[in-house]
């Protein structure tokens, strides 16, 4: 399962700091929510259904955006791939 690296902190304002690399990032609202859900250890299915109950978005659109977002998280070395 793909999960967020343990030492990554996500603040309310959507600020993320990666203490391993020293990089910092900013997220928009949906991005912040996804990272927080990941941080809480939610599964992919749980994250998707939760976001879709919070936001007005259809499944196909969100699926596509979600995978693109995960790819960016991977590229920024914020994920643990197990």
């Amino acid at each position: 399962m793909i999960s967020l690296k343990k030492n990554i902190a996500v603040s309310e304002s959507g600020f993320v700091f990666n203490p391993t690399t020293g990089d910092s990032f900013s997220l928009n609202g949906v991005g912040t929510d996804i990272l927080k859900l990941m941080k809480d250890g939610k599964s992919e299915a749980e994250i998707k259904s939760t976001v879709r109950t919070w936001y007005d978005v259809d499944q196909d659109t969100f699926d596509k955006d979600y995978y693109d977002f995960l790819k960016m998280l991977g590229q920024y070395k914020l994920l643990d791939a197990e």
């Binding site: 990089d23 990032f25 900013s26 609202g29 978005v57 969100f62 960016m72 920024y76």
Partner: peptide, 15 residues
Amino acid sequence: EKQRYERPIIRRLNT
């Protein structure tokens, strides 16, 4: 009421 959706984005600061 559901919130308006916007594609999730992450942007690196000051690189």
